[in-house]
Design a protein around this nucleic acid. Structure first.
Length: 607
RNA sequence: GAGCCGUUAGCUCAGUAGGUAGAGCACCUGCCUUUUAAGCAGGGGGUCGGUGGUUCGAUCCCACCACGGCUCACCA
């Protein structure tokens, strides 16, 4: 379910979030009692009824402006007031503005007020699927409100499709029912919002329809919607103007409903196991918990540079020190890296910690969690992702990091093997772009990503990673070169990363120092020394296992979407640089000074 | 950051071996009282992403720029 805007800030607590948005819609009867008692009359100012009479008004209400004169413009797009009119310089938009003026001339508010809704458009069809004509009459008058998607004029009658949050319903307006106001109904444009009241019936072709008795104009749409049949395909427009995507592409909204349901089911699962949802700083003085470059920001009052977090890990573990044995956070991380079909600079992660557990426990927990999600949302343990069938039935395959590489190379590989020898030898030509001066751990990583990751279609836990890749992870008891860590891959996507947490403060300090050396060697993704975190460990953190699950990728998997941009409502794109809807005009330019604009709009030089 | 591909009407797309462009839907006018991609008849709408260059002439060829997609790199 998509939440109502404004119902909840991102930082609100879960309980508040849950209490809002669930009982929507409120019944009109209840809403009518809000604040001023004078609102009992369900008649907004724009109410249109057949008894209302108005004097003759010309079809467009006002005389047409001289559009020819307006269309004169300079040869290059700029932000001048003159060129700013380009966005209105379109026949379709002009006509809608004229209709807007016409509405005002008739004393109607083109951006009207509340409408007392009694039913959902989309729900009616489901609820009354098998209803007889008599049963439909028995329902009585219904009031629905929504956006007009299509209009079909038939002389003295008109059909329209009205869409609300739940779906669509057909409207049928007749001149003999609406009288003088029928003409106004026929002037509606696709995209306009209206509220209607009327009786239900079925047309000859069996479609459930509201015979309009009265209606209210709720909002004029000044721009035309994308086409009804092909919808909106242009990916750039779909991402930049997601509202259009959501209006015309039902599949787009379905993705975000899946997303919301998945996150809800995650909370349900973890809450039931005694996990406490918390929120930790998004702005951190020392960014830690992941190998990634951070974004920097600045706090003016403290005159302090802060970093947008790359992970909540070090804060969540502090909470375990504080006695919160089971904590989780579902929130955004920010990593200053490239953008791809699998990476958005801000992304959502579920991160959770469980005291007195190890990474083996978390493998079982992860299987249970993902299966809970699969059974709750699609209702099946078998998914199809981009044409491939994925079977989530546990237990999932487990393979050791080095064994997986060995399997792909066909030669024995052990933690003690020199990965560079493999890159130069059996893996020659298969590992590209590896830094010969990098650490052994980096070489292992390159081997794994090139050889193993592309093969991991069915759910697979890869276990026992090189310790050098896992600076916050506990060392394996039997092999000091390995970390007690796993990563979960499904459909070649890295979904989860978990390990038994290092809780020895002295070893943690030593690992931080090792990372500092790597940072000095030029690895700007190496962990930074966080002395307070070490101090926290010195107070004692119980044996703990922790895990991060990439929510966006999980949504990609469950909603069968090939790009992370398709599961993020507003993925990051370069700003538009056109005069329409794009970046704002630069301030401090003399009025009418267009000359500098073209140059000024250039992106700043890279430093 | 690199390579390849793309950008034509509000939307979805054609097209032009260089002579300033078409379709469907949408829009406008007329007809039409159960249609549903309603129908019938007629009509309007584009400086072909931007800037330069070549040319008598560029939407088309060339260069640069902008934005997007895919692949690669980095990362989850």
């Amino acid at each position: 379910m998509i939440r109502r805007s404004g119902s909840c800030a991102p930082g609100c607590t879960r309980s508040t979030r849950r209490s809002s948005g669930r009982s929507w819609p409120s019944s009109p009867g209840r809403r009518r009692r809000s604040r001023s008692g004078a609102r009992s009359a369900p008649t907004p100012s724009t109410r249109i009824s057949s008894s209302r009479t108005t004097g003759p008004v010309s079809r467009w209400g006002t005389s047409r402006p001289s559009w020819k004169a307006r269309s004169i413009r300079s040869s290059r797009p700029t932000f001048c007031p003159e060129s700013r009119r380009r966005m209105d310089d379109n026949d379709l938009i002009r006509r809608r503005h004229a209709k807007l003026a016409n509405l005002r001339a008739r004393g109607l508010d083109p951006f009207g007020s509340r409408y007392p809704v009694t039913h959902w458009a989309g729900r009616l069809a489901g609820q009354l699927a098998g209803a007889t004509e008599e049963e439909l009459r028995g329902v009585g008058p219904v009031s629905v409100a929504g956006r007009v998607l299509t209009l079909r004029h038939h002389g003295k009658t008109c059909f329209a499709t009205l869409k609300d949050y739940t779906g669509t319903i057909q409207l049928y307006a007749r001149a003999d029912q609406l009288g003088d106001e029928y003409g106004l109904f026929t002037e509606l444009d696709a995209g306009d919002f209206l509220g209607v009241t009327g009786e239900l019936f079925r047309t000859r072709t069996g479609e459930l329809t509201i015979g309009v008795k009265s209606w209210s104009f709720l909002t004029k749409a000044l721009r035309p919607l994308p086409e009804k049949w092909h919808g909106l395909k242009d990916v750039e427009t779909r991402y930049r103007q997601r509202y259009l995507d959501l209006v015309v592409n039902p599949a787009a909204r379905q993705v975000f409903q899946v997303r919301s349901s998945l996150v809800g089911a995650m909370r349900e699962f973890l809450d039931a196991r005694g996990f406490l949802e918390v929120e930790t700083p998004m702005m951190q003085p020392i960014p830690g918990g992941a190998a990634a470059r951070p974004f920097v920001t600045h706090h003016n009052a403290l005159d302090l540079d802060l970093y947008l977090r790359v992970a909540p890990e070090l804060y969540l573990k502090r909470l375990v020190v504080g006695g919160l044995d089971r904590v989780y956070e579902i929130n955004r991380n920010f990593r200053n890296e490239g953008i791809s079909t699998q990476h958005n600079p801000e992304f959502t992660m579920l991160e959770f910690y469980q005291a007195y557990a190890d990474y083996g426990d978390l493998m079982e927990l992860t299987e249970a969690l993902v299966c809970h999600l699969a059974q709750t949302i699609p209702g099946s343990l078998t998914l199809t992702y981009q044409g491939e069938s994925i079977d989530l039935t546990p237990p999932w395959r487990r393979v050791k990091f080095h064994e997986a590489i060995s399997r792909e190379l066909g030669v024995p590989v052990a933690p003690e093997t020199d990965p560079w020898e493999l890159i130069l030898g059996p893996a020659r030509g298969r590992v590209t772009q590896v830094d010969p001066a990098g650490t052994k751990a980096k070489h292992w990583k390159a081997l794994f990503e090139a050889l193993v990751e592309p093969t991991l279609v069915q759910p697979t836990f890869v276990v026992e990673f090189p310790i050098g890749l896992s600076p916050l992870s506990k060392r394996n008891k039997d092999n000091a070169g390995l970390a007690d860590r796993f990563e979960l891959f499904v459909a070649r996507l890295e979904i989860a990363n978990a390990y038994t947490e290092l809780n020895d403060p002295e070893e943690q300090l030593a690992r931080f120092k090792q990372q500092a050396i790597e940072r000095e060697r030029g690895d700007d993704e190496a962990e930074r020394l966080d002395r307070d975190f070490v101090r926290a460990l010195e107070f004692g953190m119980p044996p703990t296992a922790g895990e991060g699950i990439g929510v966006d990728r999980l949504v990609m998997l469950f909603a069968d979407q090939p790009s992370v941009r398709d599961v993020i409502l507003f993925p990051h794109l370069r700003p538009e640089s056109t005069s329409e809807g794009g970046v704002a005009p630069l301030p401090n330019l003399p009025p009418g000074d267009c000359a500098g604009e073209a140059g000024a709009r250039k992106r700043p030089e890279k430093t």
